[in-house]
Design a protein around this nucleic acid. Structure first.
Lengths: 337, 337
DNA sequence: TAAATTCACGAAACCGTTTTCGCTGAAAAT
DNA sequence: ATTTTCAGCGAAAACGGTTTCGTGAATTTA
């Protein structure tokens, strides 16, 4: 839509298009005086180069894509903030896509990226994603992919993750130390690697303490809130109910608290609760919530940093980059302070 | 980066480039049989058209920009979710930019949009923004602008907002009904229109109830957390302290709760608290928080819907669109249930 | 049967940049 | 004085689509 393009600029300056282009890019071929004139007139006419013409010619879009399952979750909000900060610093643009935990959407979105729209991709896979052809297709198309948070181990790409196994173990140890013997573990998808790792940490911590894991206490929730309420109510109502809960998913904490109130279960007296979460309000909840908190902002920043290095430096093996930024346990009242 | 472009496709099919292009767009000029062949081979070769070549020629990017002050806030996360949903439905791409409440950044970002990068803009202005030349420049450049949440009244653009004045009034009425007589009002920037409107509602509600507004109880906070802690501590420590607080900003609720705990102020007994907020955890806080909640998701969806209408239909006066979607008061324990 | 119309496709201009290559005149080297 | 170098710039070919316009054959109409 800009009525003034480089041609108009050139005409105004009595210069050729090529010269103007080079002047704007501060090319050594152009004299200082000419550059000065060009910049001056460009500013006067509010010249703004067409990014798509430039992208077409250079085969470079200065744009990256961020694909995440959702954004209501506070983890992804913070991660995106980290990503955007670095991108703005580097002069890149950020396209955001939500998959709503659907593999089909994820694939559909990624398939669109084989055409040069983006120079790189940051992705946290959907909970349904197990095959990775759509991701490898990008890698082989020379668009670097960096996983953050939810990675796929087998795929040859950079990964910025957190120590999910250790966190699961640590969370469980914490509950055990606080006297829990029957601990329930809540998850959403057991396809999700971060979940299986956390769960593995949970199981091993239990076993190491000679505690039994009841199958009823491995609880698979869904994406449907009503369904989850039903499931969780059932879990918390069963005789011989758990005395501790680890939620591997932030959004399950609301139903857990709500149902406990309904069932008149006291936290932490009757039930100790711990949640993997980035909620800024964790310590003003009722009771304040013990969390394993992921370094969302830093993970976003690191993921973006690695991606830009991959985009800008050729022959840099970004695929080998495998950063693990540890999560942190914040002990609060829901597990007895 | 895609080794296969429309030329390669055409060669494979023994057709001209133009014909292939038209076949892919389902043009009436092309026979059914040819279209079938083209689609078939295109799929076989994983042909993906270069979006920038297309954008360049059509002068249309199928991309919109969303410019918001931040994203850690739950309002904007939800709004973005609504926007992205509509965009995906319409086949548009969404660029996200954060201004960090800085006018300079906002201007810098918007100035980049006069060149066709985006077909439209959704913006919630920074708290520093009062002049609007950068926005009008876009409007006059034929890129439609839709404000959401934080609009600027004087600017001729579509606005999707909520009833800030009424909400401020209603919030105040609620506190008064619950027995408050000295109410403090917390804000961040008094340049922000939504804030001045809420505050006006607050003031009028007070006056209408013959209550005095103490200047000390109009509290301007900053973007610095430590600073805010200092300010709020001071406010809550003063003799003749307020018996009610209205926070017009979500992020101030954490310091308020924290400081109350430190000062051993009981909510709601000593102090009733109400917050403009979209926190999903409001009702499991300690105590559960009375909120004025904005319809973030719906506002995002509406804003996007209006924008796409503006983008797609010419001679549609989107500037006149002025939707007000009401916020809702959720009464919880922090104001006495 | 001749003329008009329709159908299906190809040729080529075009979108706005970037970049290569070539040209010119002046300075430097021989 | 002649050749070489070089600074500074212009011409033109890309980049990969879209779109206008033209064309020949097939079909319809007069």
């Amino acid at each position: 839509m800009p009525e003034i393009n480089i041609r108009a600029l050139a005409k105004e300056l009595n210069l050729s298009i090529g010269t103007v282009s080079k002047a704007l890019k501060d090319s050594y071929e152009i004299s200082a005086e000419t550059k000065r004139r060009v910049l001056e007139v460009a500013k006067k006419l509010h010249y703004a180069p067409n990014p798509y013409a430039s992208s077409l010619r250079r085969k470079k879009s200065n744009t990256i894509a961020v694909v995440v399952p959702e954004v209501a979750d506070s983890y992804f909000s913070q991660a995106i903030k980290g990503i955007e900060e670095i991108a703005q610093l580097k002069g890149y643009h950020v396209l955001v896509y939500l998959t709503y935990e659907s593999y089909a959407r994820e694939k559909q979105i990624l398939d669109e990226f084989t055409n040069g729209r983006v120079d790189g991709l940051l992705i946290s896979v959907s909970s349904e994603t197990c095959s990775t052809g759509h991701i490898e297709a990008l890698n082989s198309n020379k668009v670097p992919v960096v996983f953050f948070d939810r990675a796929i181990d087998e795929t040859d790409a950079a990964k910025i993750t957190t120590n999910d196994y250790d966190s699961g173990y640590e969370a469980t140890r914490h509950l055990i130390e606080r006297g829990c013997r029957k601990i329930a573990y809540l998850s959403i998808s057991n396809l999700l690697v971060i979940n299986t790792k956390r769960m593995m940490g949970f199981r091993n911590a239990m076993t190491d303490s000679k505690l039994h894991v009841d199958d009823n206490n491995i609880v698979n929730c869904s994406n449907d809130d009503n369904e989850n309420n039903r499931i969780l109510t059932e879990v918390l109502k069963q005789k011989n109910r758990a005395d501790g809960i680890i939620s591997s998913v932030e959004k399950l904490i609301t139903p857990v608290y709500t149902i406990c109130k309904q069932l008149k279960l006291q936290i932490p007296a009757d039930l100790k609760v711990l949640c993997f979460s980035n909620l800024s309000t964790a310590h003003i909840l009722n009771p304040s919530l013990t969390t394993i908190t992921q370094p969302a902002f830093d993970m976003g920043k690191m993921a973006a940093t690695v991606l830009f290095k991959a985009v800008e430096k050729r022959n840099y093996n970004w695929q080998d980059e495998n950063l693990v930024i540890p999560s942190k346990l914040y002990i609060r009242d829901s597990t007895g302070g």
